[in-house]
Write a protein that binds this DNA or RNA. Structure first.
Lengths: 344, 344
DNA sequence: CCTTCCTCTGTAAACGTTTTCATTTTTTAT
DNA sequence: ATAAAAAATGAAAACGTTTACAGAGGAAGG
């Protein structure tokens, strides 16, 4: 008894009207008479009709789907961003299709093709790289695309990011203000735009305060805890060259550095100050509670989806693209992993 | 110059064949002659044709979409599970549509309706509750549904979970084996099935070892760090009644308990032992490194999607449903937050 | 009473595929 | 060479909608 699903035709028959009328009763209620509208309503109730979205979308040439390209969905960093995006999209009647690219250009290209084949109406890029199919086509390409998190220099697409350079500058300046002068930079991978920007902010802070830049004080990690541990061991082992403050490009690395510091018998913040980045959920509960840069991740997602919906809105078809990127503000969260520079 | 997108008809015209042949050349290459196949190939290349998935799906009456119901996508706990699911789905040519229900039954119902309206071919439930539309319909309902993480008692649907009862039993037993007899249970919300099972395991361990169950040693939290802190303060404040071991139903609460313990000047594990649950990413880097139950979250997702794909596979249409739930094994990770019971 | 203009409804054409069925062409067997 | 079988192709229907167009019926205005 696998009951066949009701189509619009069943409803029409049941109500004794044409399918056109049923469709109109649903989408332009004001153009159909009161009495038939009621007949249709009850016919729908009686048949348990649900519109076949696929057919509808085919006819309307849309998908109601927003494609979200993420480098790694397994990375908890993205969850709050996703949440912000999903909520905004859902409110506007869109669904979110998550494309986990695993940093594979092939997968990026595959997903980006969804735009052309009408499987998605728009796309949000969190992965800091333009998929191949888009790289060539004109920037103002029809299906709206928004960049979030990792800006893509020179791509001309609407973008929402935090000001990584300024945040790093502020963090480093905070250390300088507390008397530190030997300040290390525990950075992410060199080709990553976040690292580029954060390192630039770190350098500017040093330079503006008349502190020379010592290349030996930069450690290139990969944002992971383990690379933070490696950084800590490398930078803190030798008391002669040991920095008193470390600016880390992620909380994960900051935690790693602290683990290494404890290994070496150093106290945080009495002996070394460690500055993180992100304000992950556990930052406040760590020992010591982490001083860090709070990234408003949910807000980031919300702004990204808002920007996108704005471009999707048929009532404002070609509003001029925002000139610069949208910057969502960060916040320095001063906890106990940083303190004044110890007297040497 | 917004060039129209190429349809199968354009390809057919370009290749001088019928659209039927083009379709066949794509999907049943062996039934079309070598020469025409080549003509079609180059016509596709020339026109830049990409099949309109919507039209295809309408015709085939499928969506290629797997709906994933999550209570809160913003919760990092799910990210690894998502990753496992997405990877398996993607490999099988399915897309994953994430439905963030925010624990709202209305939203659950809305998403579940996607199954009926052909917007999704199948569904995975991570939210521990059957959406209303499904609750009434026969369990063997046509569109495949799989439950993961939180079992739904008596629903008869294929399920993949960890053995929460056994894991809690093992963890508690570990504490008992180290001489602890006053062991607290820092639980989750009472109506949560995970809590029910874990508390049952905790109790069984005590009972089987002849230790009475003291209701004052159970604290009901909500898996959060803050509720862990509250638990720690409540349970550890009074030296008279203080437990020497605490089994916590999440790493978050375990960390909270440790924070509270440090506040009170207690050392972990010398004064109190704290056992967590989940093995979150930061567990190993915490101070002290957390003893915990490792939940193989990615594996959980992988098994769930495998189970689902199995039921979706047209070649094995109605393989009998697995009698019991699939249990993915957990692992006790003994680190330094637990130790022998202190001499009193 | 006849026109004109609404308001409401139905017919039929799209949307881009896949697939059944019939037809044509090629191969094989006699 | 011819008949039969096999292989390759095309015409057209179907999937479930939305919507342009036109027709039917009344009301309003003359």
């Amino acid at each position: 008894m696998h009951e066949k699903i009701a189509t619009i035709e069943d409803v029409a028959r049941h109500a004794g009207v044409s399918i056109a009328t049923v469709s109109r009763a649903l989408h332009k209620p004001n153009v159909v008479s009161q009495s038939t509208r009621e007949k249709v309503q009850s016919a729908i109730a009686a048949t348990g009709y649900t519109a076949n979205v696929m057919a509808r979308n085919l006819r309307l040439n849309r998908s109601g789907m927003i494609l979200l390209l993420v480098p790694d969905i397994g990375n908890p960093f993205f969850s709050a961003i996703l949440s912000g995006i999903e909520q905004g999209a859902s409110k506007a009647g869109y669904n979110v299709l998550i494309g986990d690219t695993q940093n594979d250009p092939d997968r990026e290209a595959t997903y980006a093709a969804y735009l052309r084949s009408n499987q998605a109406d728009a796309m949000i890029l969190l992965n800091g790289r333009l998929p191949a199919p888009l790289a060539n086509s004109p920037a103002k390409a029809s299906p709206p695309v928004v960049i979030a998190c990792e800006r893509i220099p020179g791509c001309g697409l609407p973008t929402v990011i935090i000001d990584n350079e300024q945040a790093a500058f502020d963090a480093t300046t905070h250390l300088i203000d507390h008397g530190h002068t030997r300040i290390a930079n525990v950075a992410g991978p060199g080709n990553n735009i976040l690292t580029v920007d954060r390192t630039a902010g770190y350098r500017r802070a040093l330079t503006e305060n008349g502190i020379g830049i010592d290349p030996a004080l930069t450690f290139v990690g990969d944002y992971s805890i383990d690379s933070g541990i490696a950084a800590g061991r490398a930078l803190l082992a030798d008391p002669k060259t040991r920095p008193t403050g470390l600016f880390c490009a992620s909380d994960g690395m900051a935690i790693g550095v602290i683990v290494a510091a404890k290994e070496l018998g150093l106290r945080v913040p009495q002996d070394v100050s460690v500055f993180g980045f992100d304000d992950i959920h556990l930052a406040a509960a760590y020992d010591p509670p982490l001083t860090t840069v709070r990234q408003p991740r949910r807000r980031l997602g919300e702004r990204a989806i808002a920007l996108l919906l704005d471009r999707l809105d048929p009532t404002t078809p070609n509003k001029p693209a925002q000139p610069g990127p949208v910057i969502v503000p960060t916040e320095l969260i001063i906890r106990q992993s940083t303190g004044p520079c110890p007297k040497s």
